[in-house]
Design a protein around this nucleic acid. Structure first.
Lengths: 196, 196
DNA sequence: GTCTATACTCCGATAGAC
DNA sequence: GTCTATCGGAGTATAGAC
């Protein structure tokens, strides 16, 4: 082998998380593997296991970061959408599409079924906060009960996730589908869901 | 090994497609494999390769059947929705959720990226017809141009696929999420997307 | 037409050297 | 803290017997 491997000599834990994002953005959750992340950093396939007990814990760390960053992106987008509360939840849908198109870390990663049995307080805290952020936007946007807010958030997430998924699967025509275009359409569709 | 394998003595090709549906419904595309389908039928892992050149061609055959059945389900749901054209495309969204919840063969299977390079005229014909069915519903439902119909169909598909995906990922609370409940919510959301 | 057996690749994970 | 080496398992696919 010509490519010589060297010690990483840095914060490998953080580098593994960052490389995991890159891999997810390029290959998706389907083809995510600990070995591929290690290759990307030119460390041995055993190295990640010094920092994470297994694949699930690495993905959990990615989920925690994604939940935190996505929550911040949603909050920022809601702020930028202006004072009308009924513009703010749709803006969150647009932020979701843009964030996931850029990072590959959307709901299938953040709430992946395989993470349910992974004990990770940081992830649970960040994912809980993300949902609270969305529910607050729905409540401010006109939902008249907790149940109504939940239904509205779920509908908004379904729209955003649907568009994102179609984009990632290459469903849209090449010319008609930049991430920003699709995000704009998700915002429009999400606005149609707001009552009144 | 105690489980004795025997010749299949039937139409193995059709049985492979049927078993693929079962596997997709239970395990999803992520864990779909030719070997698992063979196990399910208690034939050897080599047997499928007498009927399909490889994994892609088996999935392509599944895609063709799913596109045909889904198109029929959508047409039936549109008929059942009554005479108002603006009820018919939303009804298609509900049919999509119910069909995919039952079979596991939704857009990620029907339009899977890995199928693009698989030559299969039957699949291409059925997937094209499925899209035509949807576009006709959109045109009848008020779209004033081909482009408007495409955008409306894509939005409807995004909603239906989004709800379906959340349902499959176990995102909804256990009590609040039978397939029919989610399908009803998809219909409602899709109706909100219809202009006017 | 299906079988057994096998080659090859990839992954997750562990043991022990450095 | 990272390495090399390795194990066990799964998957795709092929070769040759029956």
């Amino acid at each position: 082998m010509s490519a010589q491997r060297a010690y990483h000599h840095g914060d490998l834990r953080a580098a593994l998380i960052a490389a995991s994002f890159d891999l997810l953005a390029e290959a998706g959750l389907q083809r995510f593997s600990v070995a591929a992340v290690a290759r990307r950093l030119q460390v041995s396939s055993a190295a990640p296991y010094r920092h994470f007990p297994g694949r699930g814990h690495l993905l959990s760390a990615v989920s925690a970061v994604a939940a935190r960053e996505l929550g911040a992106a949603i909050t920022a987008a809601a702020e930028a959408a202006g004072p009308d509360p009924s513009d703010r939840l749709p803006a969150a849908a647009g932020a979701y599409v843009r964030y996931v198109a850029r990072t590959g870390a959307g709901l299938p990663v953040i709430y992946a079924a395989e993470l349910y049995q992974v004990e990770d307080d940081a992830r649970r805290e960040h994912t809980r906060a993300l949902m609270t952020t969305m529910l607050d936007l729905a409540t401010a946007g006109g939902a008249r009960s907790h149940r109504e807010a939940v239904l509205l958030v779920e509908a908004t997430i379904a729209v955003a996730h649907g568009y994102t998924s179609l984009l990632a699967d290459g469903f849209f025509a090449r010319n008609a589908g930049t991430a920003d275009d699709i995000a704009a359409r998700a915002v429009e569709a999400a606005r149609a869901l707001i009552p009144g």
